[in-house]
Each structure stands twice: as structure tokens, then as C-alpha cells.
Design a protein around this nucleic acid. Structure first.
Lengths: 137, 137
DNA sequence: CGATATGTAACTAAAATAGTTACATATGAA
DNA sequence: TTCATATGTAACTATTTTAGTTACATATCG
């Protein structure tokens, strides 16, 4: 299961993108997300490292570094990803068993296809897309 | 992240499918998976409830109820699923904020597409497929 | 210089994950 | 009919993940 970090990250980027003038601080974002400002700053740190936003200690607010149409949800997803695998495989099946010995590598292939399909779809959707849907609400 | 249950369930079904004659017990499966028999029995219970296998208390072994070619990985995945959502959305964004108020429903749509893409791919792959790949190793 | 914000480390609480012990119940061979 | 053996489950524990919080160092700018 994919945790709420992606949702919060998209929430953060949306607020920054739709408020290019007044500074959107971790404090104000936290109020909108309804969480602690540190949670926001931890995520903004990852988004910053991925080159999606910029910020400076002491200076309030964040700046979007790419156009919303250029930021795909896959990019955001990958910015938060530590280990790339969506599916977990049981770690030590019995190597003396015919199935146990080979199941892991077969599952890897199976899972890779599924994950590719997921990521391909996430690559189709952009921040601009999200914002557009939000405005039509 | 999707936990190891799906991997273990596929492992279970593979062992049952490839040993139609001698009884494959939770004990022997556990040895191949390298885990506790109770872990296997818990999963077999869910596979049983999904109509994929049958068993009787006291009688050793499990029986596959469908041809391996008719069992898709999606079916197995869904047999183990308690709540259907792959992505989690942060639960209570601020309803007084324009973004906070609508972000959840927009993310739902976004995530649904991604999950659909994943599931469509999982539906393409069957137990027969897995077994075939295993034998060619 | 001081109010305010970002950047992080460290800690806590809650939930998910996986494994284990214990035991009730059904089967089938001796 | 009895007993070894297997499935079916409940209950408990340990580990890891997830999310939130406190505390504080550091940078900005009026």
C-alpha cells in the first residue's frame, strides 16, 4: 500500500503552484493539509532534492521550479521513493525446493510488468491536470 | 507497498498446482516458503474463501479448484485484499481551504486510473504463466 | 537585533506486518 | 474406537513502518 506521503506532496505542490505571489509557508501548508509543519518540511526537503521546488532557510515560502504541466505524478512519486519496489517478495524461500529456488526471480518479472503499467499511468498525469480538476469543482 | 502475502499466496498455489497427486500440506508448504505453517493456513483460508482451493480439516493437503490458466494474479491479489485501495489519501485536510476541501476527490480519480492500470496488467498474468516461467529456469 | 521561517535530529504513538504458541476439531489408518 | 496427524483459528509478541511532535540550530530581512 502506498502511504499518504504522495497525497500530501501533491497537496503541497498544488498550494505552491496556485499561490505564486504570496509566500506559502510550511505553517500555512500544514494548516491546509491538517498536520504538523515538520511533516511538510520533511516532504518539501525531498521535493527540493528532486529539483521540483526551491527554498531558503529563513526565507518564507517555496518556489515551483517547473511548470505544473511538466511535473508528472510519477516524478513526485519517485521523488519520495526510497526503495523502488512496489511489491515485496518473501525473502528466503527454501533453495532446496524447486519452486522455492526460482520463485523470486519469476515474481520479479511479474511484478515489474505491473509496476511499469502503474508508473506509465502516473506519468500521464501532471500537476496541471490535478489543478485543473480542482478548479472545476 | 504491497506486502509479501501475494508472493506467498502465489507460492502456495504453485506448489498445489504442480503436485496434484501427493498431498501438499501447510507443513510442507511452510518449509518451501520458509515460514510458519500457521502463516500458510491463514493465507490458504483466504484462497479457499475466494474459491481457488479446497481443503478439509483433518484431511492433509489442498486441491486446486480452477485450472492454472484460469487463475489470474489479479484474482489472487483481490482474494487477499481487505480494503481495495492501493493508495492512501491523507484523511482530514482543512475544509475551509479551497485545495483542502477538494483534493481528496481529485486524488481518488487520479489514483483510480493508476490502480486500474496495475490491475489490468495483473489480470493478464496467470498461475499457468508463473509455472511456465518456473519450469524454464 | 529580533521576529519569523526553514532544516533536521531525536523521540513517541499508533498501525501494519510477520511470526509464534496454543488449542479445538476433523480425518483415517491401526 | 483410538490415536497420530492435519486443518482452522484465536490470541499473543516482536519488528518495522508511518505519522506526528518537541527541540533547536541556522538563515533572512525589516
Amino acid at each position: 500500500m502506498i502511504n499518504t506521503k504522495l497525497s500530501v506532496a501533491i497537496h503541497i505542490l498544488t498550494l505552491i503552484a496556485t499561490n505564486p505571489h504570496d509566500p506559502v509557508t510550511s505553517e500555512s501548508i500544514a494548516k491546509s493539509v491538517n498536520t504538523n509543519p515538520v511533516v511538510i518540511r520533511r516532504l518539501s526537503g525531498q521535493l527540493k532534492q528532486a529539483g521540483l521546488i526551491s527554498s531558503q532557510a529563513g526565507k518564507p515560502g517555496f518556489t515551483l521550479l517547473k511548470a505544473p504541466g511538466q511535473i508528472t505524478i510519477l516524478t513526485v512519486y519517485q521523488a519520495l521513493q526510497t526503495k523502488g519496489d512496489l511489491f515485496l517478495i518473501h525473502p528466503d524461500p527454501n533453495p532446496n525446493c524447486w519452486v522455492g529456488k526460482n520463485i523470486q526471480s519469476v515474481l520479479e518479472t511479474t511484478y515489474k510488468r505491473a509496476q511499469d503499467a502503474l508508473e506509465q499511468e502516473l506519468a500521464q498525469q501532471t500537476l496541471a491536470n490535478i489543478i485543473k480538476q480542482l478548479t472545476s469543482h
